[in-house]
Simulated scan of single mutants.
Amino acid sequence: MHHAETETGLFGSLVLFGLLIPSIAVGVRRLHDTGRSGWWTLIWVIPLIGTIAWLVFTLQDSTPGANEYGPNLKEIPI
């Protein structure tokens, strides 16, 4: 019996689901920083091209000034 493999699979699944929603939230926030809708997160579903596009979107700098999703947090003095 491979009991250890079952526990690792269960633990891995719990970690995956525990990190899924925060990861989506961070991705949506990053897209909002670039002035895009959070729905663009779904572009990664398109094989290869979608993943590359999502990567390019998230690596771009934030839009200067405020946009429809709020102020640019990099411009707020600490």
Rank of each mutant, 00 (worst) to 15 (best):
Val45Cys: 11
Phe57Asp: 08
Gly50Ile: 01
Thr6His: 14
Asp61Ile: 01
Asn67Ala: 03
Pro47Lys: 02
Asp33Met: 03
Thr6Arg: 11
Leu16Met: 10
Thr58Leu: 05
Thr34Ala: 07
Pro22Trp: 06
Ser62Phe: 04
Pro64Ile: 03
Leu31Thr: 00
His3Arg: 13
His2Pro: 15
Asn72Arg: 05
Val56Tyr: 03
Leu42Met: 14
Glu68Trp: 06
Ala53Asp: 09
Val15Phe: 11
Asn72Asp: 07
Val56Asn: 04
Leu42Pro: 00
Ile43Cys: 05
Phe57Ile: 10
Leu59Asp: 05
Thr8Val: 14
Gly65Ser: 10
Val15Leu: 15
Phe57His: 04
Gly50Met: 00
Ile78Pro: 12
Gly9Phe: 08
Ala66Val: 03
Gly18Ala: 15
Gly50His: 00
Pro71Cys: 06
Thr6Lys: 13
Gln60Leu: 08
Ile24Phe: 11
Thr51Pro: 02
Thr8Arg: 15
Val15His: 05
Glu5Trp: 02
Val28Met: 12
Met1Lys: 08
Trp54Ile: 07
Ala25Trp: 05
Ile76Arg: 12
Ile78Ala: 10
Ile46Ala: 11
Arg36Gln: 10
Arg30His: 01
His32Met: 03
Pro64Cys: 04
Ile24Ser: 05
Thr8Cys: 06
His2Ala: 12
Gly50Leu: 01
Ile24Met: 12
Gly18Asn: 07
Thr8Asn: 13
Asn67Arg: 08
Phe11Lys: 14
Met1Asp: 10
Ser37Glu: 03
Ala66Lys: 09
Ile78Gln: 15
Gln60Ala: 09
Leu19Gly: 03
Gly18Val: 01
Leu59Cys: 14
Glu75Arg: 08
Val15Trp: 09
Pro77Asp: 06
Phe17Leu: 04
His3Met: 13
Leu19Ile: 11
Asn67Glu: 07
Val15Glu: 10
Gly70Val: 08
Glu68Ala: 11
Glu75Ile: 00
Met1Val: 10
Thr63Asp: 06
Thr6Pro: 05
Asn67Lys: 07
Trp44Asp: 02
Leu73His: 04
Gly9Trp: 12
Pro47Leu: 08
Ser13Lys: 10
Ile76Cys: 08
Ile78Ser: 13
Leu16His: 08
Ser23Ala: 10
